[in-house]
Write a protein that binds this DNA or RNA. Structure first.
Lengths: 156, 156
DNA sequence: CCTGAAAATCGTGAGAT
DNA sequence: ATCTCACGATTTTCAGG
């Protein structure tokens, strides 16, 4: 499943993860290919799903989301349909950035970007109490977001 | 510090978080402005740091990073210089996607994308044992990455 | 602040290697 | 697979409201 990526593809992925607004000409210069070769390779990487999305990263603080919260959630019951129901609720909440279903002493880890603790408290009600399937949750407030990316290390 | 963003800016941010490759003309149509107005506003959002980066999101699995690991790290000593030293090590590691310094019963939460558990084990040595300031760490392997984004909810 | 047009730059497909 | 070239589209700047 890890596809065949040659050195050109890897270099392009590194560059595009850092800045996907680089022109295909500049990319071409950087990797020593022609612009049209770059164009084709990027199209292929997108078609194969290696590049899943192209996004602007917004600073939460600059749009009023001053608080990042990490939440460990433990379920009452892990029956598949109940699990999916609660997962769906997490995923669809716009303040929830990330949802991981994990091994270990809790079931989900959530990352949220919220305006203030009042908003967070309201969300806890919507996300955890309404369902009835959440046994407990533990809240951690992030004092620092020292590194926040989705960047993947691409080995040369 | 939450800047003055009008309805146009907010709509543009929503659209660009979903897809920053939309042409300025399409954006202009979507928000009912001229393309050049859109151009100016995006430039301003980038200059103000509201848009922090423009990135291609890579599927970790497609480039061989099959495992996502969440790690809770507890330090021995939170003296500022020691804290910065260990934080720096975390941030600079390319397999580490995210570093949060948090309140609660541990100090850091890390998100890593790794090839396999062998690579993770090697990294634990580099990141946790070499420093000497890590009291303990708890590893959670993500069975599902149900939602992974840096998207911020922009209230209309 | 905006619009609209001109100028510069860029993406993309055709054809040849 | 690749490159070069040319065309159409896009971005960007600037004059005027």
């Amino acid at each position: 499943m890890p596809l065949q990526l040659d050195a050109y593809d890897k270099k392009l992925l590194q560059l595009l993860q850092a800045n996907n607004k680089l022109s295909q000409r500049d990319l071409a210069d950087a990797v020593n290919l022609s612009p049209s070769a770059v164009n084709r390779r990027i199209a292929a990487l997108e078609a194969e799903g290696v590049i899943m999305a192209n996004t602007a990263v917004v600073d939460p603080a600059k749009v009023g989301k001053l608080i990042t919260v990490l939440v460990e959630v433990t379920l009452e019951n892990e029956r598949l349909d109940l699990l999916d129901e609660v997962k769906k609720r997490f995923v669809e909440c716009p303040q929830v950035q990330q949802v991981y279903y994990v091994t270990g002493d809790y079931d989900f880890l959530l990352v949220l970007a919220v305006t203030d603790m009042t908003e967070y408290e309201r969300l806890t009600r919507e996300l955890f109490f309404v369902s009835g399937n959440v046994k407990n949750f533990k809240t951690h407030v992030a004092m620092q977001r020292s590194k926040v990316s989705l960047g993947v290390a691409i080995e040369s």
